[in-house]
């Protein structure tokens, strides 16, 4: 067999993590992006900067602070223990939480852009036709933002698949729990198993390329139709 059982386990864990993170970010990132697109609050600049931080921050820095926050003496750690969830570091859900922070701008920024491009008018029209703000969001904004949601979801999924630094800081390297594909490649290289590393790396490369290819093809097709 080309891939070992450990490789397949790492790939499956990576897909599961990326899916969970994408779903969580769709739920969390959408209201954040909406607020950033519509708000005139003075806090908007600051919140926007915080959301964009993972784009410029070294993953090890983000991972370090998340590790401290989730650790036994950190605020998140206190909270999770109080809720009976135990400690999050070196668990799948700890990894997922860290990845949510790390991939936040990849979900929020495309959504913010598409929400801003829609403007006020469709919402005003919907309001004069009796639609509440929530109703207008679901009946008008969401369908008009389809393209932004697709872009944001694909970028978030692909970015989570490619994570390494934050994963290593928060999740470590526990087979079946936190050892994702990027860490598996690192392990193969450390063990001088270059052929195995090659196979996993090639799969990652192909996946990333195909994802971006699909995204660009879809965007081009959508652009023609609109």
């Amino acid at each position: 067999m080309i891939l070992t059982e450990s490789d397949l386990q790492a790939i499956w864990l990576t897909v599961r993590l990326a899916t969970v993170v994408t779903v969580i970010l769709l739920l969390v990132g959408t209201p954040v992006a909406w607020w950033l697109a519509r708000s005139r609050s003075r806090l908007k600049g600051m919140i926007g900067a915080v959301v964009a931080l993972p784009l410029v921050l070294p993953p090890s820095v983000l991972g370090f602070y998340l590790l401290l926050a989730m650790g036994p003496n950190g605020p998140v750690g206190h909270l999770t223990r109080a809720l009976g969830l135990g400690n999050l570091p070196f668990t799948f859900w700890g990894l997922a939480l860290a990845s949510v922070f790390y991939s936040l701008p990849f979900m929020v920024q495309p959504l913010q852009n598409v929400f801003e491009s829609i403007g006020d008018r469709p919402l005003e029209v919907a309001a004069t036709l009796g639609a509440s703000r929530l109703d207008a969001f679901f009946s008008v904004v969401l369908p008009l933002s389809r393209r932004g949601f697709m872009t944001a979801s694909i970028l978030t999924f692909a970015h989570t698949v490619g994570e390494f630094g934050v994963v290593l800081m928060i999740g470590g390297n526990i087979p079946g729990v936190t050892r994702v594909a990027s860490v598996q490649i690192y392990d193969h290289v450390e063990a001088l198993e270059y052929a195995s590393a090659h196979r996993m790396a090639a799969i990652m490369l192909l996946f990333s390329f195909l994802t971006l290819l699909a995204l660009y093809a879809w965007r081009a097709d959508n652009g023609k139709r609109s």
Binding site: R121, T128, R133, D135, L144
Partner: peptide, 20 residues
């Protein structure tokens, strides 16, 4: 009173139809 509860409809300069 919120716009959606005023029962005042509007026709705009641009038609502003929902494209979807």
């Amino acid at each position: 009173v919120r716009p959606d509860q005023r029962r005042i409809a509007m026709v705009f300069q641009q038609h502003s139809l929902f494209p979807h």
